[in-house]
Nucleic acid binder design. Structure first.
Lengths: 152, 152
DNA sequence: CTACAGATAGTAATTATTACGATGTGAAAG
DNA sequence: CTTTCACATCGTAATAATTACTATCTGTAG
């Protein structure tokens, strides 16, 4: 991403009533420059150079706030939380395909609930649907050739 | 569940090459008697009376082993891991509806991947699909009446 | 009965996350 | 440009969940 994208993130922070601190600008930069996901730890590591005594409180509080306000999205990948800039242009309900090699996220337009009828008078409140595999690029670089489809 | 179900679990442990220790018998009992899920902590609490110096190692090692061997299934509910006896009679690939009130698990026969075509030459390795809501029983007891459908 | 690989106890270490009082600061108002 | 103060951060501690490891114990094959 480019400088313009940092501005977009900072602007949305501002619009949502958050103060624009130096630390938050840096968080915006980190997410704008990230190719894939960032874990809390990675955000910390990206900040600790510039703010050498930075508090975990600052990291976790901002990640939580930005998630709640919809600026970033939280994913659960391989048993741990990771974050990325929310899919702009996909504000409506959608799902994702996630590349196990490069962590690229491909938004999906279709939702399995569109043509699903719950049995047993079950009242559906929410659902979770994610696809994992290897994207076109990574396959061409030989990734995932040997990977078997896991039925789970 | 009944005594017979404890035996089934113990037998499958045995068949899979695990030694039948007292502790493992007790774990089998806990899962056989559980109405819903058990967290690692709950398993610990269920064992600590009988084995007062029981090690976390024992709990976590056995949960991991039993999960890997397919005796129990691991779910992620409300940001934490919980376990239950695997769906016997549903050894093939399937998904679940999970009641947010009583934690009842309803196996689903249909899989969203059955009629799904991945775009972008994405090579699908695995997927995750879970439905959360309120089961028939809990709705009749007034649970989930006010719950709104969450698009996420 | 014996031997031993595997299991457990007891404890420590690691990791992730949350909490909180003191201090600092963005930005709104004057 | 100052003042002000709610919000943000720092520094540190606490909590929680999980993993690690060694000495000891035990299920079970032979």
């Amino acid at each position: 991403m480019e400088e313009r994208d940092v501005e977009l993130i900072v602007q949305s922070m501002n619009r949502l009533g958050l103060r624009i601190t130096d630390q938050r600008k840096t968080i915006a930069q980190l997410f704008a420059n990230a190719t894939g996901f960032l874990s809390a730890k990675e955000v910390f590591l990206g900040m600790v150079d510039k703010y050498d005594g930075i508090s975990f409180d600052t990291i976790y509080r901002n990640l939580r706030l930005l998630k709640e306000l919809g600026v970033i999205e939280q994913f659960q990948i391989e048993d741990s939380y990771k974050y990325r800039v929310a899919c702009f242009g996909h504000q409506h309900h959608h799902h994702h395909m996630i590349c196990l090699s490069c962590n690229r996220v491909i938004p999906l337009e279709s939702c399995p609930m569109d043509n699903f009828q719950a049995p047993d008078q079950f009242r559906i409140v929410k659902h979770r649907f994610e696809i994992y595999g290897y994207c076109d690029n990574c396959q061409q670089q030989g990734m995932g050739e040997d990977a078997e489809t896991i039925s789970a």
